[in-house]
């Protein structure tokens, strides 16, 4: 069973998307901030990470950078899902190795699952 790590500080959002992921037959892990997120990426080696950008402490960009710089982790696909959406942010995330960039408010959970599926295919 493929494991998806959700790094998201908003509890309700995290729970909603985790519920959806579980319903789709994936294993879901959760992290509520950047530090925890990076730790879980290192410890649990998930098959995919859903990563928020604005997080308390370590930001999503910092995590992307750490993952990109770590050869053991750099193969893990990361989908950024954030409510930032300016071109600068998107470019920055893609340059730091993000596989996709989703603006949370513009996607339904189903659409997010479809993106996940297309990457894990």
């Amino acid at each position: 069973m493929k494991k998806i790590l959700i790094v998201e500080d908003d509890k309700f959002l995290r729970e909603l998307i985790a519920k959806k992921i579980l319903a789709e037959g994936y294993d879901a892990a959760e992290a509520k901030d950047g530090e925890e997120g990076l730790k879980k990426i290192e410890a649990e080696k998930p098959d995919l990470v859903l990563l928020d950008l604005v997080l308390p402490g370590m930001t999503g960009f910092d995590i992307l950078k750490s993952v990109q710089e770590n050869p053991l982790l750099s193969d893990i696909p990361i989908i950024v899902f954030s409510n930032l959406g300016q071109r600068d942010d998107v470019d920055k995330a893609i340059n730091l190795g993000a596989k996709d960039f989703l603006i949370k408010a513009h996607f339904t959970p189903q659409e997010i699952i479809e993106r996940i599926k297309s990457i894990l295919k």
């Binding site: 908003d10 309700f12 959002l13 909603l16 998307i17 519920k19 959806k20 409510n83 603006i103 949370k104 408010a105 339904t108 959970p109 189903q110």
Partner: peptide, 13 residues
């Protein structure tokens, strides 16, 4: 956008 996303996702589900 964060709370709006939450509403959107919850309603959709």
């Amino acid at each position: 956008r964060t709370p709006l996303s939450a509403i959107k996702w919850a309603l959709r589900m």
